[in-house]
Amino acid sequence: MKENLYNYILGIADNSLILGQRMGELCGHGPSLETDIACTNISLDLLGQVRSYFQYAAKIAGDDRTEDDIAMLRKERDYKNVLLVEQPNLNFAHTIGRQFLFDVYHLAFLAELQKSTDLTLSAIANKCIKEVSYHERFSSDWVKRLGDGTSESKEKIQEAINDLWTYTDELFHQTKADKAMVLESVGVDVTKLKNDYYKRVKDLLEEATLQIPDSKWFQKGGKEGIHTEHLGYLLTDLQYMQRTYPNMEW
């Protein structure tokens, strides 16, 4: 099995899986019908993308593993998502802030992944980028509305951005699989996305009349499987059915 490629795909897909699960939690709990539907549609897009990645990963694994096994039956330490996407839904501003900080990255990442020499990955990226551009429009639009809205909405989105800022730097860390895949022109060199990312985020925050956090301390670990306490609870929810009734299907 091509272990680096397998791990590389999981690193990409786990971000979408965990963020998709978080957005799915809002089903029936969004602040308005329209935002509820938007959040669950984003969740559906992300989970759909995950299926393409995991089907490919299962093929590379070459054993009897299926896309469902990869999604549902790994242990916490085996998930490679960044810490940002596992952060809980504290309030709508927090949900939007998390989505925004990820979407800007996600869009830039997929633009590069389209150039991958791995044809399956470039095809998936080509498909996903169209959907993610709608996500980024939605979340950046809301950052501006909340930032330039009432004093309360401004305070909440500022607080969310300040809280979540510490998780942004990890997006640009390279894992062992990343480095190997960049060498083969399969993977994206995320270190090269960093400057443009912060520039784009800062421009949008300024437009939203928000302060740019100046904290220099950043959290890391998710990509190596060292997660915040929130992931365990999320996985309990996500995996409950498969753990309780192994191999059950709808």
Binding site: E34, I37, N41, D45, Y134, F138
Partner: peptide
């Protein structure tokens, strides 16, 4: 436009 996301993933409301 009411919402960029509608009743299914492919639609806006």
């Amino acid at each position: 436009l009411v919402s960029q996301f509608g009743s299914t993933a492919c639609k806006a409301l």
